Amino acid sequence: MKLTQYGDYFYLYLLLLTFIPAIVLALKGINIKYYGLIVSIAMIYLIMGKTIGLIMFLMFLAGEITLIYGYLYLRKKNDSRYLYWAFLFMSIIPVIITKVAGLTRFAPYIGFIGLSYLNFKAIQIIIEIYDGRITEIKFIDFINFILFFPTLSSGPIDRWKRFEENLNSKIEKNEYVNEFLLVGLRKIFIAIIYKFIIAYLIDTYWLLNIPKEVNIINSINYMYAYTMYLFFDFAGYSLFAIGTSYIFGIKTPENFNKPFLSKDMKEFWTRWHISLSRWFGDYIFSRFVLDSMRKKRFRSRFTASHVAQIITMFIMGLWHGLTVYYILYGLYQGVALVLTDIYQRKSTFYKKNKNQKWFNCVQIAITFHIVCFGMLIFSGYLFK
């Protein structure tokens, strides 16, 4: 039997059963991490089933453990940049293989559920070992971090240092009840409304009823329907993952924050899939800009920033898949960010009116439509 994470009521029933021991342990002041690890292993087995995916997952886990602990040992003896790049590349190989395999008939046999998100965890650890921010990794804590089941399928993407600190912190009874249990249950309640009611209604009575013929009217209709469905489905999933994490004593970071109220595309990416955009911002965008300024690749920081935005969003597009519409989506988002920055820096009209309420309302409406058109590209609807 295979389960779909947060995808049906039977999974939610099993999830509820796992909550009971976690809550009892937490209320007694006992750290939940060992119980959480046992549940994670059991849930991963139930989600993946006895499939090739489970075998691929175990191979991935063994490979990344070897790479991370191998590099942690070598980094203490050698800070070579070439050694770092070699280990970084090796840590990325799993996601590269799965994206390339996605274009072939071998796609069903390569990869497993949540590979990309697990790979992000391994990659960031390699990077931070090189930076010197990570000098020691306790094995049980590391396995907890990699296997943490609430965020298995689609994040949110947590950070090792934050997770480790949260995992080992002592939580008092009142703190657990008020800051973890009640908050977690509230998020799960909202998730049920988002994913099983609103997203379901949008999909059933709007999205699926749009004629398959691709024309302007149908494309516009699909654009709005898909954008709203994607938000409520994915935000619902994220709230399930975050709420479950809280009940297991981990404050997994938020992933959505009213993204359709964004006044520009830069703000949008601080509100939409926040953990992913921050990951790309920290490990690709910021590093490219700093390295470019240090090596004087460009005349100004603005040029470096614009090139970094294009590269970052292009890579994000590739991460979603090696198809035309994902690549175009990445480039579209990169160009939108660059044009936003140029407009805000050079437009006197913008500078004069940016604090006006009417102007902010207009910006929100325009940004919403820029976002929706990007989602239309992302959906692949125009490429049928």
Score class of each variant (00 low, 15 high):
Met375Asn: 09
Val214Trp: 03
His306Arg: 13
Pro211Ile: 01
His369Asn: 15
Phe268Asp: 01
Ile32Val: 14
Ile377Gln: 03
Val324Ile: 15
Tyr176Val: 09
Ser277Ala: 11
Lys173Asp: 08
Ile65Leu: 13
Ile250Phe: 05
Ile242Val: 15
Ile38Ser: 14
Leu167Asn: 10
Phe288Gly: 00
Leu201Ile: 14
Trp319Ile: 05
Phe302Arg: 13
Leu74Trp: 12
Ser300Asp: 08
Asn166Tyr: 11
Trp269Arg: 01
Ala365Ser: 14
Ile274Gly: 01
Arg278Leu: 15
Leu322Val: 09
Leu152Thr: 03
Asp141Thr: 14
Phe120Trp: 09
Phe302Ser: 14
Ala42Pro: 07
Ile96Asn: 04
Phe256Glu: 12
Tyr381Lys: 15
Phe373Ala: 02
Gln333Asp: 08
Lys295Arg: 14
Arg186Ser: 13
Ile342Asn: 09
Arg159Asp: 09
Lys77Ala: 08
Met1Pro: 08
Phe280Thr: 06
Ile126Thr: 02
Ile140Thr: 08
Leu61Ile: 11
Met293Arg: 14
Ile52Asp: 04
Asn360Val: 13
Gly63His: 01
Phe89Gly: 11
Leu72Asn: 03
Asn215Ile: 12
Val177Trp: 06
Phe378Glu: 02
Val95Arg: 07
Ala107Leu: 05
Met43Ile: 14
Ile52Arg: 06
Asn209Ile: 12
Ser154Tyr: 09
Leu339Pro: 00
Tyr9Leu: 15
Asn257Met: 14
Leu318Met: 15
Val324Met: 12
Leu3Phe: 15
Lys352Ser: 09
Leu328Thr: 00
Ile93Met: 13
Leu318Phe: 11
Thr135Trp: 06
Leu207Ser: 04
Gly155Gln: 00
Phe232Arg: 04
Ile97Tyr: 10
Thr204Ala: 15
Ile68Cys: 06
Tyr45Thr: 13
Leu230Phe: 10
Pro156Ser: 01
Tyr176Asn: 05
Lys99Phe: 02
Phe57Cys: 00
Asp282Ile: 14
Asn166Val: 07
Phe260Gln: 09
Leu328Ser: 01
Ala26Tyr: 07
Asn215Gln: 12
Tyr109His: 03
